[in-house]
Amino acid sequence: MKPLQTRAAARETAPPTPLISFRRIDLSYGDRRILEDINLDIGEGEFVSVVGPSGCGKTTLLRLIAGLARPTAGDVILDGQPVAAPSRKVAVVFQDYSKALLPWRTAAGNIALALSAMGVPKAEWPDRISALLATVGLAGDGDKLPRQMSGGMQQRLQIARCLAQEPRVLLMDEPFGALDAMTRQSLQDEVLRIASTRSVTVFFVTHELEEAIYLGDRVVGLYANPGRVAQCFDVGLAKPRDQLSTREDPHFLSLRHELFSFIKQA
């Protein structure tokens, strides 16, 4: 059984009690089986990238952690408790930022949505908002409406709103898929910086293999129809990562090779 092997390999990097674990997850919509026997542990502070063919269930897997979807069988355990409903401990950066921001609120107002949901006293909002905007490189853009911002800026704003939740887990669903290469690279580095300074656990879905390796401590590859964990790759590249040297690292290249051939047969 191959999955057992990969789980054992994963254990080396994951701490003894994982923050998130999928335990024998099955999920069907009607007669269609979407996910089958998913077993996966994610350690506190770990950065896990998830790749797999389109429609294999990456988003569904992420929604299970978010509490936005329920498994047909099995449990998703978060911090020792089965996930039964969404929790503010878990923040979701949705794939389509244009549908996840309130178009009638300014950037500051969009962050305020999370602060208000968190019950942060109003007096603290201005300071918190400017700090969060600065964190994602939007200092001075607080008065802009989303429609006045570029795609990259809107995705930064969505990340800032998620950080306002002070989450333990950050779920990101192909967050940079719609962005150009330059914007994408600078956002990758910012996410890495944020993840390490805030020691947040990140579950990062992408269809870009290089992005998965560049960001991840571990890359989880899925099979499709039904979605299964096919293989876990420990990345083991030095941190902090660097857009030039990391991508030229022989280990990066050999991982890339391995992942490409995996995806081709998946």
Partner: peptide, 26 residues
């Protein structure tokens, strides 16, 4: 009303009233 925004509200554990005032009505 954009279902994506309802998901944002759910992810933020917003109650019915807050959800109505902050998202549905606007």
């Amino acid at each position: 009303v954009e279902p994506g925004l309802i998901e944002v509200a759910r992810a933020l554990e917003m109650g019915t009233l807050r959800r109505a005032l902050a998202i549905v009505v606007p």
